[in-house]
Structures are given as structure tokens and as C-alpha cells.
């Protein structure tokens, strides 16, 4: 048998380059934006940044939707895009600012969290906002969003041990804050 490559279907990439309809995408946006906003708001504790990131997430969803193969539920896939986009933004932001950030005003964030999610526990939101951003990310990913240690380690590019120690520290700080 010869090793000649089979002819490549010339139009294989044609659908991806075809025009798409933003009006149809709006239905998808309306169905999922509230979950995306909750992720970006809690991770950044910053309303305007969370709104920018929500838009950014849906731009990426728009770009990457042709590659979605249905291996997971669409909502799970969009959630993962939201988490990864936010983490990437936080990484580049902290590099730019060269410091580990906590939110400037946990009380202001807690008020916004209550406006966005009226049924939320404000004392928890305030304590989350007061955490250092690294510990906050790990706590939110594990205890709120249900990711496992190994998934978080992969997303953050750190070791399993780092994830566990950050999580334990975040929980300790939370418990101290809630006792006050």
C-alpha cells in the first residue's frame, strides 16, 4: 500500500467561514449570561470588570462555537469558557499590577452581589471578597462551582498541593471572617 495522502475535501472549512446570525446568538446569550455574570462577578469582585468579562466570554463563545462537539452539555462548556477567560484576565491583570489583589471594598461588592443575586448570603459574599485573589479563585472553583482538585490544578497551572493549601487557607480565612 502506498503512503499517498488522501485528497483533502476542499470545502471542509467553508461552514466556519460563512456568515453567522447575531439575532440567533442572542437567544443563547439570554439563556446563559446570568450564570456567566455570577462567575465573573464573584471571581473579580468588580462590577465593571465582571460586565466586560461577561461580554468577552460571549465573544469567545461566538468564536469557538463551531468547535463545540457536544461532548459535554452546552451550559457546562460555556461555564468552562467563562472560568478560563476570567482566570486568564486575572493573571494578566495581576502581572500588570505586580501585586496580589484583594478587592478594594468588600462591603461595596457585597451590596452589588445582593442586587445581582437577591437571595445570596451577604456575609459570605463579603468574606469571599476580602480573600486574596488566589485563595478566592480556588475557593470559588472548588466549593461554589464544584471543580475537583486536579481540574483546578490544570486550570491554574499549579500543583495539586498548591491547590489544597490555597483552599485550606481560604476556608480558614473565611471561618475567621464569619466569626467576627
Amino acid at each position: 500500500m502506498t503512503a499517498t495522502a488522501p485528497p483533502e475535501p476542499a470545502l471542509l472549512d467553508a461552514p466556519a467561514a460563512a456568515p453567522r446570525d447575531p439575532a440567533a446568538f442572542e437567544a443563547l446569550y439570554r439563556a446563559h449570561y446570568r450564570h456567566v455574570y455570577a462567575v465573573t462577578l464573584r471571581m473579580t469582585c468588580d462590577v465593571s470588570r465582571a460586565e466586560d468579562l461577561t461580554q468577552e466570554v460571549f465573544v469567545r463563545v461566538w468564536q469557538k462555537l463551531p468547535t463545540f462537539r457536544g461532548d459535554s452539555a452546552l451550559s457546562t462548556w460555556i461555564h468552562t469558557v467563562a472560568v478560563r477567560t476570567t482566570l486568564q484576565n486575572m493573571r494578566s491583570e495581576s502581572r500588570r499590577e505586580a501585586r496580589v489583589t484583594t478587592t478594594d471594598d468588600p462591603a461595596r461588592y457585597a451590596a452589588e452581589a445582593r442586587r445581582a443575586m437577591p437571595e445570596t448570603a451577604v456575609d459570605l459574599e463579603r468574606a469571599i471578597a476580602a480573600l486574596p485573589s488566589g485563595a478566592r479563585s480556588v475557593l470559588l472553583l472548588h466549593d461554589v462551582n464544584g471543580y475537583r482538585y486536579h481540574e483546578i490544578a490544570e486550570m491554574l497551572g499549579v500543583s495539586l498541593g498548591t491547590v489544597k493549601s490555597q483552599l485550606n487557607r481560604a476556608r480558614r480565612l473565611m471561618m475567621e471572617a464569619l466569626e467576627r
Binding site: 449570561y33 446570568r34 450564570h35 455574570y37 455570577a38 462567575v39 462577578l41 462590577v47 460586565e51 461577561t54 452581589a113 442586587r115 445581582a116 443575586m117 437571595e119 445570596t120 448570603a121 459570605l124 459574599e125 475557593l139 466549593d143 461554589v144 462551582n145 464544584g146
Partner: peptide
């Protein structure tokens, strides 16, 4: 308590 936090929120605009 963390697991029971709401996971959807509305934007102001």
C-alpha cells in the same frame, strides 16, 4: 453554605 450560594446573577444594565 458555599455550595448553596446562587449561581446566577443579573447585570445592572
Amino acid at each position: 453554605r458555599l455550595a448553596a450560594l446562587p449561581r446566577a446573577g443579573d447585570t445592572a444594565a
